[in-house]
């Protein structure tokens, strides 16, 4: 990423101390975001979310796959094996996330430079979304127990970067999952216990993903100096010594937590941070849902014509 000088670092730290950040925000103020859904026509669901200058594009595809459980661990797909290692049920579908940071966001992402960050972000997403805390009803993705299920592929493309990538990705994922439609399947019994299914071609029949409302968003808190801030910009991230990532769902329940970077922090500060994250997370989800509803109303008014993307 960009470089920072000691005096710049000092300026930012002192600003945060005084509750006045470089862009005029207070410590716990979030930047505004804009959202567009349903813009990638060949995907089952999509979303482009811009949090100030951080810009992510998500394409969700649903595909039919075999149910993998520990009992039938003869598959060689390591990534997917990882996801199912924690679960032993044969009646659940799964979500496979992959993040790709495009070099358009930063030169550091050129070639294999983005591998580490791609892997880290994908792993967090997979972990949060595939557990019971992920919100999505994985059982509803099952088509024939023990045999076949829907797999939701969430592919994230990071186009531009100005801090707080993880929160942006989670917000966008929630919106993209809201936008996703899964075709309806009909199961038929073809005798002697054998099951077969048909996929409906009718777009009208396609259903929303069950439980998208309970998908959590993350709130990343950065400790700079003695204080902490939410929604750090790229410059502020360079001053951060400790980062806490907290995933919160719409009921204000904590779904995941992770500390990163090299600093340490007091348990009392941690409790305070968790409380802040919980409040902010709830507000964020509310804002996101209102924006999504508003967008849907606008889309139906304009006869479903999207003037989206970059034009």
């Amino acid at each position: 990423m960009a470089l920072i000088s000691p005096s710049e670092k000092d300026f930012i730290t002192k600003g945060i101390e005084a509750d006045m950040r470089n862009d005029g925000r207070s410590r716990i103020a979030y930047r505004d975001f804009t959202i567009e859904t349903g813009i990638v026509s060949q995907a089952s669901g999509s979303c482009r979310l811009r949090l100030s200058k951080t810009d992510v594009l998500i394409g969700v595809k649903v595909e039919i796959g075999d149910i993998i459980s520990n009992t039938t661990s003869d598959n060689n797909n390591e990534q997917e094996q990882d996801i199912v290692n924690n679960q032993n049920e044969s009646d659940k579908g799964r979500i496979v996330c992959s993040v790709e940071c495009s070099p358009s966001a930063s030169r550091d992402f050129e070639g294999k430079g983005a591998n580490d960050i791609n892997n880290e972000l994908s792993q967090i997403m997979n972990r949060v979304l595939n557990g019971p805390q992920g919100g999505i009803d994985l059982k509803s993705l099952c088509i024939i127990p023990g045999a076949q299920c829907w797999i939701i592929y969430v592919d994230v493309l990071v186009l531009d970067y100005d801090g707080n990538l993880l929160d942006t990705i989670f917000l966008a994922t929630r919106a993209a999952l809201q936008n996703t439609r899964i075709p309806k399947t009909e199961i038929q019994d073809i005798g002697n216990g054998q099951l077969e299914f048909d996929i409906s071609d009718d777009i009208e029949d396609a259903e929303k993903i069950k439980g998208w409302e309970d998908v959590p968003v993350t709130v990343s808190l950065n400790k700079i100096g003695q204080k902490y801030i939410v929604d750090a910009t790229a410059m502020e991230e360079l001053c951060t010594d400790t980062k806490i990532i907290i995933a919160v769902n719409r009921n204000g329940e904590i779904c995941a937590m992770q500390k990163s970077l090299y600093g340490s922090l007091n348990p009392s500060l941690l409790t305070e941070m968790i409380r802040t994250a919980k409040d902010i997370g709830k507000v964020l989800i509310k804002n996101l849902d209102t924006t999504l509803e508003h967008e849907q109303v606008m889309a139906s008014r304009a006869n479903n014509k999207k003037f989206g993307f970059f034009i």
Binding site: S41, K53, D55, S102, P103, S104, A105, S106, R107, L159, D160, Y161, D162, F309, F310, I311
Partner: peptide, 29 residues
């Protein structure tokens, strides 16, 4: 054909182009 320049901020130059359903972003540093 639809196109627009200056769509991203980090890059020194960027452009988005749509030729039919083929869509591409180019960034220059």
């Amino acid at each position: 054909v639809n196109c627009k320049t200056g769509i991203l901020v980090q890059a020194d130059g960027s452009a988005y182009i749509e030729q039919g359903n083929t869509k591409c972003i180019a960034t220059v540093y």
